[in-house]
Amino acid sequence: MGKVGYKHLLSLRPKSKEDQQNAISTLRRDVMLEQVEAETDGTSTTRAYIWSIFLHSRPKSSEEYIRYVRQGPSPLAEKIRNDVSRTLVTDTFFHTRVSQSSLSRVLNVYVWKKGTTYVQGMNVLAAPFLYVCKSESQSYYMFEKLLQHECPLYVVPNLDGVHRGLKLLDKCLELLDTKLYAYLISKGLPAKLYAFPSILTLSACTAPLSEVLKLWDFLFAYGVHLNVLCVIAQLLVIRDELISHPKPMKLLRKFPPLNAKDVIRLTVLLITKIPRDLFDLLVRHCWDPDVGVVIDRL
């Protein structure tokens, strides 16, 4: 068995509801054990399909999307424009493939359609979809699914879910690596000071994009809440440097280049060490407002 490619997807074609569930489970497992077939720049013929399955994003006609685009710039267009030109600036692959206008349109349509606010970081969350998908409207619908169903609390005006994710990061790190946690705290560094961007953007703020896409394969398969552990895994990769650095923030201001395979492998290990009740909070923190009070009290 090689990588997860289109032939494999076709062979999963389910005949019943039960079949479908089994097929998705198989796909999840394969995405974790194998890798999605992709070029070195991260482009892939199958990834868009795999993501749309995991995100429950059905194929949709682009009519509705186009209608919103026709409404022109949203009330937040200026803020959006300001950030669009500053999105994944160092990634040349991204900029050869995705235009600033399309990123801008996706974000403006989101504001029009959902009548919500735009928060910095949404630009980074939208970018990978535009890179992966075959059409702008497909990118939009997957982006919308992610924000509305997977991590709605991350993009509320107060960024509640992000604050909670950061708190859970501290709690998990304290448990998983007491020494590292204590060292960072002794330097006045709770997670909110170094991991804010990584939590809010599901690690997409860390280059290279081709590795971000692999990490997102994993996160979409098993749940974006796992990103909290993925961020811890990224810390553990440079643990020795961190713990011997007099000013660890110097290393944390810009995380080391992402290596999805290492991070996923470590994350899977970390999962087994998190107690059930804490893990339950982790699972729910990005979408369930009810666990907010519990997390805030931790």
Partner: peptide, 13 residues
Amino acid sequence: REYKATIGADFLT
């Protein structure tokens, strides 16, 4: 020149 929009907060001493 390769600047990026700050997400959340940034911290330097």
